[in-house]
């Protein structure tokens, strides 16, 4: 589903966020990209979503080279559900309108759209809060709202950037549980995080980055998260 080949990313200030990363994520996988701050986790996720472009190498999603499909990028993104660390909610719109936005973009009929929105809100436990403004929700609820918006158009790929950041363990596990439920119905889930503890229960494939390079990877898919993924060590070794 996602294939990165010798992907490098250099920012205009000369900082190399990623250095020749090659990896593949298959359909139906639950993959976690981890690493220390500045390791390149979020950059990798942004490249997969076409939010940023690789400086070198190729990024393919569903067989499509992202750099070569600039005009098709909006249509590619419609097949992806994006969950942002800072939520990126529209604070002047209701919960309902926030979740409906991806359906509006695809021109989904309003009546069917409303059913989909309510189903998505039900899935994340926010049914009944449709009219509320996002600002009135707690941090955990805002993250769940962001997830509802990401899944309302039923994407085949979910990309989540630090979905459990700033949440206590209970809320974090709740979010992971929601992501896991989508994975169980065949959605490919890629999460960028340094919170491996919350993800332990879903036994994901772990891809560890250090200073922009692939550093460590769990050998099998679906095996438990290793406690010995030493992020501090990674910072030292790479």
């Amino acid at each position: 589903m996602i294939a990165l080949e010798r992907v490098g990313k250099r920012y205009p200030n000369g900082f190399d966020a990623l250095k020749s990363v090659t990896l593949a994520i298959d359909t139906g996988e639950f993959a976690v990209i981890t690493g220390h701050s500045g390791a390149g986790k979020s950059t990798l996720l942004k490249l997969m979503a076409g939010i940023e472009m690789a400086t070198t190498g190729t990024v393919r999603v569903n067989g499509q080279d992202i750099a070569g499909a600039r005009r098709a990028l909006p249509f590619l993104r419609r097949k992806i559900g994006l969950i942002f660390q800072d939520h990126k909610l529209l604070y002047d719109r209701s919960v309902f309108d926030n979740v409906r936005l991806p359906l509006d973009i695809t021109g989904f009929p309003p009546r069917d759209g409303a059913k989909r929105v309510r189903a998505a809100l039900d899935k994340v436990g926010l049914l009944g809060r449709e009219r509320a403004l996002p600002i009135t929700l707690s941090g955990g609820e805002q993250q769940r709202l962001c997830i509802a918006r990401a899944i309302v158009h039923r994407p085949s790929l979910l990309l989540a950037d630090e979905p459990t950041a700033n949440l206590d363990l209970d809320y974090a596990q709740e979010i992971v549980g929601i992501l896991s439920s989508f994975h169980q119905v065949g959605v490919t889930v890629v999460v960028s995080t340094h919170d491996l503890v919350s993800l332990r229960m879903v036994r994901p494939r772990v891809i560890a980055l250090a200073r922009g390079a692939l550093w460590q990877e769990s050998e099998g898919r679906g095996e438990p998260v290793r406690d010995d993924v030493d992020l501090d060590g990674a910072r030292v070794e790479s």
């Binding site: 979503a49 939010i51 909006p74 249509f75 590619l76 993104r77 419609r78 992806i80 994006l82 942002f84 990126k88 909610l89 529209l90 936005l101 991806p102 973009i105 695809t106 918006r149």
Partner: peptide
Amino acid sequence: REEIEVSRLIGATHGF
């Protein structure tokens, strides 16, 4: 601006 940027991130075309 925020709405435009969010819309772009989730698949809005220039036309939309």
